[in-house]
Amino acid sequence: MVFDGLFDGFTAQLLAGTVMTVKVTLAATAMGIVLGLLGASARLSKVAPVRWLGDGYVGIIRGIPELLIVFLIYFGSTRLLMFIASQFGYHEYIELSPFVAGVIALGLTFGGYATEVFRGAFLAIPPSQKEAAEALGMGKLRIFYRIQLPQVWRVALPGLGNLILVLMKDTALISVIGLEELTRKTSMAVTATREPFTWYLTAAFMYLALTVIATVLLNYFEKHSRRHEVPVQSSFKKLAEG
C-alpha cells in the first residue's frame, strides 16, 4: 500500500489532528457565545418579531441534526454567498474552507443551545438590580455591560461548560467535509493499515483525554468565578475554629 512508509508517523498525524480539533472547538465556542448572547437578548426582547426570530433560531437548531447543518453550510453557503455578492457587482468565486464552514455550522449549533443557557442566566438576575441601576441614571448599554453581563457569566458558566464538551465531540462531524482533524486523520490511518478497531479506539482515548483536560479547566474557571461567594456554612466553621 502507498502509505506503508507513513506507518510510524500515524501517531504524529493523530496529534496534529488533535490540535486542529482544539482550534475548531475554540473558534466555534467564541462564535457560539456571541450568537448565544444575541439569541438570548432577542428572546427576551420586548419587540415581538425580534422575539420570534430568537425562538425560530433555537427551534431550528434543536430539531435539525448537526451533521445536516454541516453539510448545508459547506455545500450550500457558496451559492448563497456568491448570490449576495453578485447583488453588489462582485462576481469572483467565494468559498468557505472546511474549517470556516465547520466553525460556522458548529458555532450556530452552540449558539442555539447557549441562547437557552444565557436566557436562564439573565432571568436569574433579580430585576430590582436593573431598577436600582436605572435609578442611578445608568444607560441601558452600561447596565448590560457593568451589571448584567458579569453576573450572567457566572450563572451561565456550568451550562456553557457542558456545551463546550458537547461541541468538542461534535467537531468529529467536520471530518465528513474533509477537515483534517482527529477523526479524519484516524480514518486516514485506518485506510492505510486496515486496522479500524485499533485506530478508532486510539482516537476515542484521545477524545477522552481532551474531555478530561477540558473538564478540569472548566471546573477551575467555575471555582474562580465563585471565589467571592463564601459558603455560609464554611464561614461559620471558620468563626468557630478561629
Partner: peptide, 23 residues
C-alpha cells in the same frame, strides 16, 4: 458512562461498524 459520554458518537459508530469487523 465516562467512555460513552466522553467520546464522539461518530467514533463510536465507526468503532462498532468498521472496528469490530477487524477481528
Amino acid at each position: 458512562i465516562f467512555f460513552f459520554r466522553g467520546t464522539p458518537l461518530l467514533i463510536q459508530v465507526f468503532l462498532i461498524y468498521y472496528g469490530l469487523s477487524q477481528f
